[in-house]
Computed example of a mutant assay.
Amino acid sequence: MSVVNLRGVTKRYRDTLAVDDVSFDLHENRIHGLLGRNGAGKSTVMRMLTGQEIPTSGQVRVFGENPYENAAVLPRVCFIKESQRYPDIFLARHALEAAAMVFPNWDQDFADRLVEEFRLPVKRRVRKLSRGQLSSVGVIIGLAARAPVTLFDEPYLGLDAVARQAFYDHLIADYGRYPRTIVLSTHLIDEVADIIEDVTVIDRGRIVMDDSSENLRSQAVTVSGPTNAVEQFADGHDVLHREDLGGFTRVVVSGIPADRDTASLQVEPVSLQQLVVRTTQFHDAALAGAGNGKGDRS
């Protein structure tokens, strides 16, 4: 069952088209990856989901309702973003106390354990926290709130590798005990590849991939070998990326060709990060070709 629905959503800021006719669903009790480059439209989508922005056109529904200024929806949605702003007079503990008042499922014992693990100085003013400590405030709130829909817009980028791994470990463990819909928007795709169950990729405000992680990984391969053999293998399929060296070729192919001879080829799975990167580049090339009046997408 889907808990979030976007249908034909477009968002313009004067002459800037930030989101262009986007439609997708977020399903109940799943961990979603909302991926894409800087400026692709990810944060704009999340602001519309949390009622902070109104779409120029199209429909946004969270739990079947419009989230904008909706008191029945917003306490069930937690949005944590990088460089989250808090009042300057707040101590770190005040941010946690405010979250406890907002989110009905708040778990204070869990929050206290996270404060200890992330070594958060709760009596320090927020404006004097380091970037990593400020990130810790956000991830603690996002985890301890246990909101039915929780969105993390890269708040963990300020954490070091050890702290990020602690965040992922707690996320997985707590999600197992208290399932909810979680969205991770990140550039660190390799780090979350084994966590996310569904993948939505936005590029230039448009959806270029939207499927389960398992399905996406099964739909592409990397093929290496003699150029003629590789070209025969990939014939009729989208080549997302190609590298040539003398008579040797390496390609990333979308849509695994069936019943093709692989005797002289090396066929390997594609990592989720490589798939996202190569698909985005392919999408860019297709748009550039269309802009130049060229129809060839390969």
Rank of each mutant, 00 (worst) to 15 (best):
93 R>G: 02
94 H>E: 02
94 H>S: 07
95 A>F: 03
95 A>K: 02
96 L>Q: 06
97 E>G: 07
97 E>A: 14
98 A>W: 05
99 A>H: 04
99 A>C: 08
100 A>V: 01
101 M>F: 12
102 V>G: 04
102 V>I: 15
104 P>M: 06
104 P>G: 06
104 P>N: 07
106 W>H: 03
106 W>K: 00
107 D>I: 08
109 D>A: 15
111 A>Q: 04
112 D>Y: 01
113 R>E: 01
113 R>W: 03
114 L>F: 08
116 E>N: 07
116 E>D: 09
116 E>L: 08
116 E>C: 04
117 E>I: 13
118 F>T: 07
118 F>Q: 10
120 L>S: 01
121 P>A: 01
122 V>Y: 05
124 R>P: 02
124 R>T: 03
125 R>P: 01
125 R>F: 00
126 V>R: 01
127 R>W: 06
127 R>E: 04
128 K>T: 13
131 R>D: 00
131 R>E: 05
132 G>M: 05
132 G>K: 11
132 G>F: 03
134 L>T: 14
135 S>C: 13
135 S>K: 13
136 S>P: 04
139 V>F: 03
140 I>P: 02
140 I>H: 01
141 I>L: 05
143 L>R: 11
144 A>W: 01
149 V>I: 14
150 T>L: 02
151 L>K: 09
152 F>S: 07
153 D>Y: 07
153 D>R: 13
153 D>P: 05
154 E>R: 10
154 E>W: 03
154 E>I: 09
154 E>M: 05
154 E>V: 08
155 P>I: 13
155 P>C: 13
156 Y>W: 10
157 L>T: 10
161 A>G: 08
163 A>T: 04
165 Q>K: 15
165 Q>T: 15
165 Q>D: 15
166 A>N: 15
166 A>Q: 14
166 A>W: 09
167 F>I: 12
167 F>Y: 14
169 D>L: 13
170 H>L: 10
170 H>Q: 13
171 L>Y: 10
171 L>H: 13
173 A>I: 00
